[in-house]
Design a protein around this nucleic acid. Structure first.
Length: 502
RNA sequence: GGGCCGUUAGCUCAGCCGGUAGAGCAGCAGACUUUUAAUCUGUUGGUCGUGCGUUCGAUCCGCACACGGCCCA
C-alpha cells in the first residue's frame, strides 16, 4: 500500500485531513478495517417484529441483537449517547452508555468516531421514553473508517450533478433514490417471472455485432484486435432472438442493454435496457392482449394500484387499453383533416406543411403520416393506448397487413404521451425481408446512416423458415420512469452517462 | 444543435449600486446518562467553476470555455 501522501485526491480538505489523522491513529493500534463482526438482525426486521411492543414487554423478553451499518446520526450527552445506524433495510437507534461499553471504548472509541463510519453493535432491545425502538448497547466496534464527511443531515444531498456522478452518496443519503432502484428491480423481476410463467425462455444474445440490426439507429463502433475487424455494440437484440425462433425456441425473451449513438436527453441514455420477447404462432393482437395483462398485473402486484401519478398526471390502467390505428388517431386529433388528406403523398405533404412539420424530400406517404402522427397525436395519448397499423415504409421488420399492405400488423403502446412498447407480427417471408433490406441498404448508400444493413445470415435463417411469430420490445427505463414518477431517465439509471468531470 | 437558468465553506443556501465574503448544519475544543434537525459555550474552515477582458479595484459587469438543470429541435 502506498503511504498517506501518495494517494490523496485533489479535493482534500480539513475535515478529511482530520479523519485521515484518526485513521492513522487507528492503524497504529491494529487493523482499522476488521471483518469479523457478524450481525444477526436488520433494522427493518427489528421494527417489524418488536415495534409494537411496549418497553416493559421488550425488557421482559431481553432480546439480544447484533446490528451493523453506517452511523447517520450521533448525539452525545456526556456519559451516554444516541446514534442511528443505517443498514440495507433502514435505520435503528443505538443507546450507548459509557458504563455499559467501558470508559475506554466510549471515550477513545465511540466519541471519536464520525458520522459516516460503519459500526457493529450488540445489546438488548428497549424503547426510549419517546417510544423509539433502540438497542441498549453493551458492545460496539468500528468496522470501517469513513474519510469523507457526509452531506448535511437535514437537507441531505440535493445537487443533481453529484447525485448522478456519486450515486453511492445519493444512495446513502436519499431514501427516495433507494426506493426508485428497488422498485426498478422489482419491476424487472416481475416481468421476468411473468414471462417465465407463460413459458418464455430467457436467453442472452450477443451485444457485439458484426452487422448492427433490429432497429434504425446509429451504433457505437468498437474494434476486435485479434480478428482485426470493427464491431458494433448492438442497437437491438431482435434479429438474434428471431434466429432462435427459427431454431425452435418458440417463446424467447431477453432483458438487457442496447446501445445507440445518439444525443443525451431526459429520455435518452446511450445505453438503455430493453425487454424483447417473441412468441411463435401468435400475432400482434395476441401480444397486445398479453401486454395488457402483463402491465395490469405488474401494476397490481408491484405497485398495488391500478392508477399511477407521474409528473402531475394520473394514468388509469384499470380499464381496457384503447386501440386505434395511426390514421384514425391522426384524424381524431386533427379534426380539420379528412381521409383524403392522408391518402396521397401530395395531399399528406400539404397537410404536414399546414401543420409546420418539416419533411425531407425522400419521405414517402408512410413516413409523412408518421411525422404527422408524432407531432400531433403522441402527446395526447395519456391513458394507456395501443396505436396500430403503422405504415410499411417505417416498419422494415414487420409483416404487412393482408388486407392493406400499405400498413403492417404492428402496434405501439403509449402512456403519458410516450412510447412504452413496440410490437408486431414478424415478417417471416425471407424474400420480402431480403427486398426490404435491399431498400434499406440503398437508403444507407444514399446517405441515411440510420438505415439498416443487409444481414445475409438473417435472411438465410428466414429461408429455413420462421414460424408465424409476433415480437415486442418494451423500453424498461421509460416504463420505470413512468412507474416511479421520474422526470429524467437519469433518475432511473444507477450510473447515468455523464460528461467527464473537469 | 439553439434558447434560458445555475456553479460561493464538506453539505444546504444568503451576498444590495463593483470596495478581497456570511448563516445553518457538519468539523474542532469544552459541558451534559433518554436524545432524535438534541441543547449550551467557544472556534477552525473560501483560488467565489475556469480563462480572458473592462476598471484604481471584479463573487458582482462583458466575452469565451467547462459542467449541470429546464425548454425547444
Amino acid at each position: 500500500m502506498s503511504d498517506e501522501n501518495n494517494n490523496i485526491s485533489s479535493d482534500e480538505n480539513a475535515q478529511i485531513a482530520q479523519r485521515r489523522a484518526k485513521l492513522a491513529a487507528l492503524r497504529a493500534q491494529g487493523n482499522p478495517f476488521p471483518n469479523h463482526f457478524r450481525r444477526d438482525s436488520l433494522a427493518a426486521g427489528l421494527h417489524e417484529k418488536y415495534g409494537a411492543l411496549d418497553n416493559a414487554a421488550l425488557e421482559g423478553e431481553s432480546v439480544r441483537v447484533k446490528v451493523a451499518g453506517r452511523m447517520m446520526a450521533k448525539r452525545v450527552m456526556g456519559k451516554a449517547s444516541f446514534a442511528q445506524i443505517q443498514d440495507m433495510s433502514g435505520r435503528i437507534q443505538l443507546f450507548v452508555q459509557r458504563d455499559a461499553v467501558s470508559a475506554e471504548c466510549y471515550e477513545e472509541g465511540f466519541k471519536k468516531w464520525d458520522i459516516g463510519d460503519i459500526l457493529g453493535a450488540e445489546g438488548t432491545l428497549f424503547k426510549t421514553k419517546t417510544g423509539e425502538l433502540s438497542v441498549r448497547v453493551d458492545g460496539i466496534g468500528l468496522l470501517t473508517k469513513s474519510l469523507r464527511p457526509l452531506p448535511e443531515k437535514f437537507h441531505g444531498l440535493v445537487d443533481q450533478e453529484i447525485r448522478y456522478r456519486q450515486r453511492y452518496l445519493d444512495l446513502i443519503m436519499n431514501e427516495d433514490t433507494r426506493k426508485v432502484f428497488e422498485l426498478r428491480t422489482r419491476i424487472i423481476n416481475f416481468m421476468r417471472s411473468f414471462l417465465a410463467e407463460h413459458n418464455f425462455l430467457e436467453v442472452e444474445t450477443p451485444m457485439m455485432h458484426v452487422i448492427p440490426g433490429g432497429a434504425t439507429a446509429r451504433p457505437f463502433k468498437t474494434h476486435h484486435n485479434a480478428l482485426g475487424m470493427d464491431m458494433f455494440l448492438r442497437i437491438a437484440p431482435e434479429l438474434y432472438l428471431k434466429r432462435l425462433v427459427v431454431g425452435g425456441f418458440e417463446r424467447v425473451f431477453e432483458i438487457n442493454r442496447s446501445f445507440r449513438n445518439e444525443g443525451l436527453s431526459t429520455r435518452h441514455n446511450p445505453e438503455f435496457t430493453m425487454l424483447e420477447f417473441y412468441q411463435a404462432y401468435a400475432d400482434y393482437n395476441d401480444l397486445m392482449d398479453l401486454t395488457e395483462v402483463m402491465l395490469r398485473k405488474l401494476m397490481h402486484d408491484v405497485l398495488g394500484t391500478m392508477s399511477i401519478a407521474c409528473q402531475g398526471h394520473q394514468f388509469d390502467f384499470s380499464k381496457p387499453f384503447a386501440r386505434r390505428t395511426v390514421q384514425d388517431a391522426i384524424l381524431h386529433f386533427n379534426p380539420h383533416l379528412r381521409d383524403a388528406d392522408l391518402e396521397s403523398l401530395a395531399a399528406a405533404r400539404m397537410a404536414a406543411a399546414a401543420l409546420h412539420i418539416p419533411l425531407k424530400d425522400s419521405y414517402g406517404l408512410g413516413k409523412v403520416q408518421l411525422e404527422i402522427f408524432e407531432k400531433t397525436v403522441e402527446q395526447h395519448l395519456q391513458n394507456p393506448t395501443f396505436i396500430t397499423a403503422f405504415p410499411t415504409e417505417v416498419s422494415p421488420l414487420a409483416r404487412c397487413n393482408t388486407a392493406d399492405p400499405f400498413v403492417t400488423d404492428r402496434f405501439e403502446l403509449f402512456v403519458g404521451g410516450r412510447e412504452i412498447a413496440n410490437g408486431f407480427s414478424e415478417l417471416n417471408d425471407a424474400e420480402d425481408q431480403a427486398e426490404r433490406f435491399r431498400r434499406q441498404a440503398k437508403e444507407k448508400d444514399a446517405g441515411d446512416d440510420e438505415a439498416m444493413h443487409y444481414d445475409a445470415d438473417y435472411i438465410r435463417a428466414l429461408e429455413y423458415g420462421m414460424p408465424p411469430t409476433a415480437g415486442e420490445g418494451i423500453g424498461i427505463d421509460r416504463l420505470v420512469m413512468l412507474l416511479t414518477d421520474s422526470a429524467s431517465i437519469r433518475d432511473v439509471l444507477l450510473f447515468p452517462h455523464m460528461r467527464p468531470e473537469t
